Simulated assay, not measured.
Amino acid sequence: MRKKSLWTTLLAFMLTFGVLAACSNSTAGNEAANNTGNDGKNNDQEETDPGVVNVYTARHYDTDDAIYKNFEEETGIKVNVIKGEGDELMERLKREGEATEGDVFITADAGNLHKAKEAGLLQSIESETVNSNIAENLRDTDNKWVALTQRGRVIVYSKDRVDPSELSTYEDLANEKWKGKVLIRSSENIYNQSLMASFIELHGEEKAKEWAAGIVENMARDPKGGDTDQVKAIVAGEGDVAVANTYYVGRLLNSSDPEEVKVAEQVGVFFPNQDTTGAHFNISGAGLLKHAKNEDNAIKFLEYMTGTDAQGAFAEGNNEYPANAEVEASETLKAWGDYTKQDIPMAVLGENNADAVKLFNEVGWK
C-alpha cells in the first residue's frame, strides 16, 4: 500500500539523515530568483517558483519533521518551521499582527485551537479536499481549524493491582473505593480542561463539578508532572490508576529505552464509558493564519497534512489515531481494542473551557 511505503521512507529519513527545523524564510526564494528554468523562462516569475510555507507549531516530533520533508519533495514548496509552546506562539502571533510571516498554526488540543480562533488569529480554510479528508465533527464550525490527529484520554491502570473488570467510567473514579489511588495532572493542563469541558457538555455543570470534587478527594498525591509521569507513578506504586492520553503509553511501548518499555508493559489501557457516553477523545490540529502571505501554499500544505500519506505517517510514527477515517491506526493502538468515542463536536471543548476552569477552581483542583 502507498502509505506503508511512505512510512518506510519517512522512517529511513529520520534514522539516517535527521531533521532540519527552523529553516531560513528566504533562502529557497532567493535561489529560485537567480536561476533560469529548463523551459527558458526566468525563475523569478511567480508561476515557476513554488515558494514557501511558514509553519508555527507547538508539536515537537521527529515524525512531523519527516512529513514536512516529504511535502517539500513532492511539491517543491519549502517548509519553514518555527517551534514553541502553544500559548507562546499565540502571543507571538498577536504581537506580529499583520506583519507576521506565519501561514499555518499547529497546536495540540481543541481548546488551544479555539483560543487561537477567539484571538482573531485564524481565517476560514476554503478547501473541498480538506473537508473531504476530515469529518465535520473534527473541524471548527467556521472551518477556522481542522484536526490532524486524535488521541484518547483514557484510564491507565496497574496490571498487578487492578483487575480491569473493576473499571467502568470516568465518573466511577470519584467513587470512594479509589480514594488515595487516582493520579492525574494539574487543572492548568489543557487536556484536563477539555475533559472537564466534555463533561459539562454531556452532563451539565452541576454533575461535572461533583465529579471534579470527587477526583480531588481520591487523588493519590497533589497533581504534578505530565501524562508520562502519571504512568511512571503507577509503576512506582504511588497510585493504582491514572488519566492519560493514549499516545503517551504508545510512545513508552515503542521507546528505544528498555526501561521505558518495561514501564509501559506493567500498565493496561482502558477505554471508559463504553456503555454510556463513550471515551473522551481530543485532537491536535492546524489553522490557516489570518495574515498568511503564502495562502495558496498553506492550503496545499493543509491538504497534504490531512491526506492519507501524511495521516498514515502520523499513525505509525507517533501512535496517534488518524483524523482521516480512511487511515488505520498503528498496530500498538489496535492491540488495545475497539472503543466508542464521545459524540460531541471538538469545537465545544474550546467553547466550554472557561466554565471548566471555573469549576476546577471552585473544587480546589490544583
Rank of each mutant, 00 (worst) to 15 (best):
E201L: 10
Y247E: 12
I184E: 09
S24W: 11
A212K: 04
N34K: 15
K300E: 11
I125K: 07
N143V: 00
N34R: 08
L302R: 02
R92F: 10
E126W: 05
K290L: 09
D65T: 09
N192P: 12
A213L: 04
R151I: 12
M90Q: 13
R95Q: 14
L288K: 09
H203Q: 07
A292R: 11
V154K: 05
N254L: 09
N218M: 03
L173N: 15
L20P: 05
V267Y: 01
Y157G: 04
G180M: 08
S165V: 13
E88A: 06
G102S: 06
K4F: 11
T129S: 09
K4M: 14
Q193K: 12
A325W: 02
G307I: 00
W211F: 12
S24K: 13
N80M: 07
A347T: 10
R59S: 13
K262V: 05
K207E: 14
F270Y: 15
Q45I: 08
G250L: 07
T75E: 10
A298S: 13
R2F: 02
T75H: 13
G97D: 03
D227K: 03
E265W: 04
V81M: 14
N112I: 06
L122C: 13
T8K: 14
E210R: 15
M196K: 11
Q45T: 13
C23S: 15
K341W: 00
D140K: 08
V348Q: 02
K300D: 13
T141C: 13
D160P: 12
D142M: 14
K207L: 07
G51C: 10
P345L: 01
N273C: 09
G29P: 10
F301E: 08
N294S: 00
K358R: 14
N324Q: 01
G51F: 07
A33M: 12
L183P: 01
N143A: 11
L252A: 05
S284V: 00
S26E: 10
G364T: 06
W178I: 14
A99K: 12
D309E: 13
D257H: 12
M305S: 14
D65C: 14
A197M: 04
W178P: 06
I77E: 04
D338E: 15
A244F: 01
N175W: 08
G307C: 07
E98N: 09
R251T: 04
V154S: 09
T246E: 15
I344C: 07
W211N: 09
N38S: 15
K179I: 05
E96P: 03
G111K: 01
E91W: 05
H203L: 10
K341H: 12
R95K: 11
V156L: 02
R59F: 03
W178K: 06
I155D: 00
Y248G: 11
A213P: 05
M1P: 10
N361P: 06
G287M: 01
D309R: 09
L20G: 07
E205F: 05
K366I: 00
K300S: 13
A292W: 04
N143E: 02
I215L: 15
A213H: 06
D39I: 00
D62N: 07
F271R: 00
L148N: 09
E351L: 05
L333T: 04
L113K: 02
F301C: 04
Y304E: 08
S26R: 03
D140P: 05
P164L: 07
K179C: 04
A325N: 15
I184T: 09
E201W: 14
A236N: 15
D103Y: 04
A335E: 11
S284T: 14
